[in-house]
Each structure stands twice: as structure tokens, then as C-alpha cells.
Design a protein around this nucleic acid. Structure first.
Length: 385
RNA sequence: GUGGCCAUAGCUCAAUGGUAGAGCUCCAGAUUGUGGUUCUGGUUGUUGCGGGUUCGAGUCCCGUUGGCCACC
């Protein structure tokens, strides 16, 4: 169920609520990425404390390791990782193409060797949905091919044909009843939502065709894929703009793998409701922190003696207790607490940004908020102690 | 005391007598459906010191200082 609560009169920004089996998600929302059944370096308790509403996990990674036997044994991913909030599972199409040693792609599915021990495996649209049913995620994604950037028109068109065929089979597989049974109960679990994925690379006509065909099949939400693959920001926004007009207003839109803080606001203004991105967690592990003024590489020597927090006035647990100088030391010494503290800060930053965005849309001030935030955010701004 | 080996970047070490380099550290940059990864740049030298041979010496010769090893 997806209810629109407020809309911005001057842009396509929406404030809405998506209800899943494990609770409601207030949108626009950022979803922390927990590929292997863990948002790297933080616990589910910490995620709850910073008000994460939903997290991601990855079908391909969990299929390869620990595998479905473990998942069945533990009664699904929620119980396995001890997270009782909503989970969205990416189908693994992206990983099959980026990680696995490819054997063969056919209309039937993908034969591949996994990146862990090279074991051959096969994933079809039906199998992808079956795995996600076993994982018990609240939102499942269809299996798709994510073409590279740049990409020739002919390749993008052929890839889209295959992906659309797969989307139809995913829908059919779900209707045929691969939905998860509620572990340990007689009652059937609440229905798993399924999102289609718009592809079409950088070509507006393919994007439109993709969106319209998916809507024809009918999904609970629509993702915009084929972005965050190395394309320049203008291409990324164009991909959003050429997909969104053909998606229904009463269903959530999800920009896959995106983005930077300003990019998220630009996409909210273009009608996107949901985001996932590894930037806050990955960059944290390399020492980069997100601030209102831009990013900061905390490994830089200039922070060695600074006693202030990562960001003045920040309400995250790291800023409450630790200095830039200490965190820099931890990162230089490769102490795991350092990347943990920055991860907590960055996730708090992303989640708070979306909370402020929701508030701005509700109060009719999104335009000003967007302008103010994007205007003051610089990639190389260096704040002083 | 005698004999031998060694001395080059902050560290560990390369360099047929022909423009002194590498790895690590250090200083920066990249990272968008995960990459604690990886990649890309950059700083640093009176080649222990003093002489000599040579067109040219980190390299050959003499002396000297320091370290290590072996033997009286």
C-alpha cells in the first residue's frame, strides 16, 4: 500500500508512506545498504536508533554465501540477522554481471561461476524470485540486466527486450505462489511486494518503452536502474527524467544505487521516493565523512590536532563523543573503531537529510530547502576546527 | 689486536664505470543496485666522511668513522 501524503507544488517531490509486511516506510527514504545481510560495521540496534526505516540486502551474495539452506534453517533473513524492520532485496542481476565470471546469458537465465569459489550456478527470473521468497524480504526486485555505460543503442535495445521478458516471468512466478510462508506460523505471511526495474540505458525512447511495458505487467513499485554505472551526473538525471513521466503516481519510484546528498534532492524534485547508495558506508571505511558543507577526508593531516567533532551540531553518536583528531588517528592506525564511527555519522547524515526533506515537503518549503542545501554543499569544502 | 663483511629516501633494499630507483611509510585524489578492496598521482637523497684514478665514481683505489661476524 502506498499513500501520497503531500506533494510539492513547484516540483515533482512527493511525501508518501509505503506499507510493507514489517512496517511502514515514510518517503522520500534512504535505504542503508546491507549487501551480505549486514550494514557493514553497524548493528541492527544502531540502525534502529538512528531511525533507519528499511535496509537492503542482496540476493546474489546471500545465495552464494551463506546459501539457502542456512536461510531456511534460520527462518529467513530477518531472523538470521536480527533485524525486524523492512528489507528490500536486490535481485542480483547487477552482481552477476559485475562480479561473477560469466558463462552464458540466454533468454532462459544466466549461467555463471560465483566470485567466491567459482562454483557454477544458474539464476533465472523464477529462481531469483524463489530465492527472495526464501529470504523473506518485504520488497523483492525483478531480475534484470544492468547494461554498462556507455552502451550502444542496439545492445541496450536487445538487453531491454530480454529484461522485459524476465520481468513478466518474475511477476508470473510470484503470482504462481512463491511468496514466503510465515516461518513458525500457520498463517500466510503478508504479501511480498515486487518492484520492476526500468532499463534502456541513456536512450529516452527505450526508457519510455521500458516503463510502459513494466506498468502494463503491473508492479508494486518501479525502480530506475542502469544508473550509478559510471555515467556523468547529467546522464543520470536524464535517465530519471525520461523514465518518471511514464510511471504511475500512485506507486513508489526507486532510484537504484544513488546518490550523493545533492543528487538525492535533485531526484526527489524529479519524483523519486526511494534511494539506496553505498557512498555513506563505503566512503566511511576509507575515511570520508559527509557534512552539510561537503565531504571531508578525515585521514588528511590537517585534522590531526582538531578537538571538535566531525560536524559541529551533529546529533550522531560519533559526534557526541569523539574528536576529528582521534578519528583520524584511528583511521591512520587502521583501527576498526574509526570506520565504525564514520559509518555511524554518514548514515545519520543521509537519514537525517531525508527526514528534513520529508518535513520540507510537508510544510511546503522543499524548494527553499533544496536550493539552500545544494547551494552550500561543495565537494571539496574544508571546514575548520 | 688480526682478518672479513657492510654503510644508498623516514624504514627494508636495488642500481655491467654512463640521467640514483622500488616496496612500505608519509602527503593527496578517485570510489554511486558494496570494494575494510583497489587504483591514480606526489614529497623525500651532499649514496657515512675525506682524498685519489677517470671524459665520467653509488660502483675502482687509499685513508677514516661507525656497525656486524670470526679468530687470538
Amino acid at each position: 500500500m502506498f499513500e501520497l501524503l503531500a506533494t510539492d507544488p513547484r516540483s515533482k517531490a512527493r511525501r508518501a508512506r509505503l506499507t510493507t509486511a514489517h512496517g511502514a516506510i515514510e518517503t522520500p527514504a534512504f535505504m542503508p545498504v546491507g549487501t551480505q545481510g549486514t550494514v557493514k560495521a553497524v548493528t541492527p540496534r544502531e540502525l534502529r536508533e538512528m531511525k533507519a526505516q528499511i535496509i537492503l540486502a542482496n540476493t546474489y551474495h546471500l545465495f552464494v554465501r551463506p546459501g539457502m539452506e542456512a536461510m531456511k534453517n534460520f527462518g529467513g533473513l530477518h531472523r538470521f540477522m536480527n533485524w525486524d524492520g523492512p528489507i528490500l532485496t536486490d535481485s542480483g542481476g547487477y552482481q552477476i554481471f559485475s562480479l561473477a565470471r560469466l558463462r552464458k546469458i540466454t533468454d532462459e537465465g544466466v549461467h555463471f561461476q560465483n566470485h567466491v569459489d567459482g562454483t557454477p550456478a544458474f539464476i533465472s527470473p523464477e529462481i531469483a524470485m524463489q530465492i527472495q521468497a526464501t529470504l523473506g524480504s518485504d520488497i523483492a526486485m525483478v531480475l534484470d540486466e544492468c547494461p554498462p555505460w556507455p552502451c550502444e543503442y542496439d545492445y541496450a535495445a536487445r538487453s531491454l527486450e530480454m529484461t522485459l521478458g524476465w520481468a513478466g516471468r518474475c511477476k508470473k512466478a510470484v503470482e504462481a505462489g512463491v511468496s514466503p510462508a510465515a516461518p513458525g506460523t500457520a498463517a500466510p505471511a503478508a504479501r511480498q511486494l515486487v518492484f520492476g526495474i526500468v532499463q534502456g540505458a541513456t536512450f529516452a525512447d527505450l526508457r519510455r518503452k521500458s516503463a510502459e511495458a513494466l506498468v502494463q505487467i503491473g508492479f508494486d513499485g518501479y525502480a530506475i536502474g542502469g544508473v550509478s554505472v559510471g555515467e556523468p551526473e547529467e546522464e543520470m538525471l536524464r535517465a530519471i527524467e525520461s523514465s518518471e513521466p511514464f510511471l504511475p503516481e500512485n506507486k513508489p519510484r526507486y532510484a537504484m544505487g544513488l546518490g550523493t546528498p545533492p543528487q538525492m534532492l535533485e531526484m526527489v524534485a524529479r519524483g523519486v521516493d526511494m534511494f539506496d547508495c553505498v557512498l555513506p558506508t563505503r566512503l566511511a571505511r576509507n575515511g570520508t565523512a559527509f557534512l552539510a558543507a561537503g565531504t571531508l577526508n578525515l585521514k588528511n593531516a590537517e585534522f590531526a590536532l582538531q578537538k571538535g567533532p566531525i560536524e559541529e551540531g551533529c546529533a550522531c553518536p560519533s559526534c557526541a563523543e569523539f574528536s576529528r583528531g582521534y578519528i583520524r588517528h584511528l583511521m591512520k592506525a587502521e583501527e576498526i573503531l574509526g570506520l565504525r564511527l564514520i559509518t555511524l555519522h554518514n548514515l545519520h547524515f543521509y537519514l537525517t537529510l531525508m527526514e528534513r526533506t520529508r518535513h520540507a515537503i510537508e510544510t511546503g518549503s522543499f524548494g527553499d530547502f533544496r536550493k539552500q542545501f545544494v547551494g552550500s554543499y561543495k565537494t571539496r569544502e574544508i571546514a575548520t576546527d
